[in-house]
Computed example of a mutant assay.
Amino acid sequence: MDQLFDGYYSGRRVFVTGHTGFKGSWLTQWLLLLGAEVSGYSISVPTQPSLYESLGLSGQIQDVRGDVRRSQDIQTAMDKAAPEVIIHMAAQALVLRSYADPLTTFETNVMGTANVLEAARHCPSVRSVVIVTTDKCYANNEWQYGCREADALGGHDPYSASKAAAEMVVASYRSSFFDAGDTVGKRTGIASVRSGNVIGGGDWAANRLVPDCMRALTEGNPIVVRNPGSVRPWQHVLEPLAGYLWLGALLARDPATYGGAWNFGPDPESAVSVEQLVSMVCQAWGGAARFETATSAQALSEADILRLDCTKARSQLGWRPVYDVSEAVRQTVMWYRSTMENAGQAVPLTVRSIGDYARAARARGVSWAAMEGGGRE
């Protein structure tokens, strides 16, 4: 496992914000398997149940509770960790919550990102910074073709707008400080990453499609769907995480080439409607699809079509998706069913899922999974 990503993470110090969340927990587990020394910074464990707690990660890393909105706190934590790689995932990540609390959404996603970059700027050990935003940062005109990294940023809802603003903060810091050769900038790469709609085992967030499906199927209730016809780029959680990790390694070695914005999304045929995905989840669960459309009060404004063009990551990073949407759904439902039947399966199943994914990537010839790399610098 530690030979993946050209062996870069073995023994490396990695600072992960938002490590207690769904994606953050999968990332932290993968980093530990790669041999990294992980420091996590998060305001709290966001859900109950919690994948982070199920995996028992707090005893395996430097686990720090803090708010990215507090600049001095994150500077202190980063200075103590002295990381070589930073992966910033802490965010207010839910569209519906952004309508209910727009100020916290903007404070967390915009100023939180600025605080992380400012702390990185003053931390001499840092060699690469990967800032995680979202595919919803684009000024989406709902064209049939996928959004590309050079397309205009925007967003109608507070969540999307806050992520577009975060992208502007990243671009500003890169050009003003890091590319300009400020203190540590001569050897620090900065990139932002935009992934599709991620699914996978262990997501228990409210008002998110797959967790809502799991709760409804377990309780025998109909699945409430806000916008059944909306098309999204669905992908397994390990797909973008592989992109983040590979980019973090490459940034440290060549900041000029790999800095900038990157899309990590599925193949075009994996962009299916919400209704189609619900049917696939129910089929994998072993029952008939039974859903109802949310009332107008529940269904706030969201784009009807969202697709990503990942040509840049494919051509310049050698990254590409490993699972199609059917396999992503199968892996996801299998994880939930197995852990619901036996909670003790969370750790071995998650570790096995990462190993299976890496082997599938190697079989497909994906760059980060190749075993003939040169290892550490």
Rank of each mutant, 00 (worst) to 15 (best):
D2H: 10
L4C: 01
F5V: 02
Y8W: 15
G11F: 13
R13W: 10
G18V: 01
G21S: 04
K23A: 13
K23F: 07
S25F: 00
W26L: 05
T28G: 00
S39E: 04
G40W: 01
Y41Q: 01
S42P: 00
Q48A: 09
L51K: 00
S54A: 14
L57D: 03
L57H: 04
D63G: 01
R65W: 05
R65E: 05
R65G: 00
R65C: 04
G66M: 09
D67S: 05
V68W: 02
R69Q: 06
Q75G: 10
P83M: 09
V85N: 04
V95S: 02
R97I: 03
S98I: 08
Y99F: 15
P102E: 09
T104D: 11
T113P: 02
N115V: 08
N115D: 11
N115M: 11
V116I: 15
R121K: 13
C123M: 09
C123V: 05
P124R: 10
S125Q: 04
V126T: 06
I131L: 13
V132W: 09
D135C: 14
R148Q: 14
G154E: 07
H156S: 10
P158S: 11
M168A: 08
V169D: 03
R174P: 01
F178G: 03
D179M: 09
A180K: 14
G181W: 12
G181D: 07
I190N: 00
R194N: 07
A205E: 14
N207G: 01
R208H: 07
L209V: 09
A216C: 11
T218Q: 15
N221A: 12
V225D: 00
V231D: 03
G260C: 06
A261D: 07
F264A: 03
E269G: 03
S270K: 06
S270V: 08
V272E: 07
Q276A: 11
Q276I: 06
M280V: 01
M280Y: 06
M280D: 08
V281I: 15
Q283D: 09
W285E: 06
G286L: 10
E292P: 01
T295N: 12
I305D: 04
L306P: 00
C310W: 04
C310F: 07
R314H: 10
L317V: 06
P321W: 09
V329H: 04
R330I: 02
R337P: 02
N342K: 12
G344M: 08
Q345D: 08
T350S: 15
G355N: 13
A360S: 15
R364N: 06
V366C: 12
V366H: 08
M371A: 13
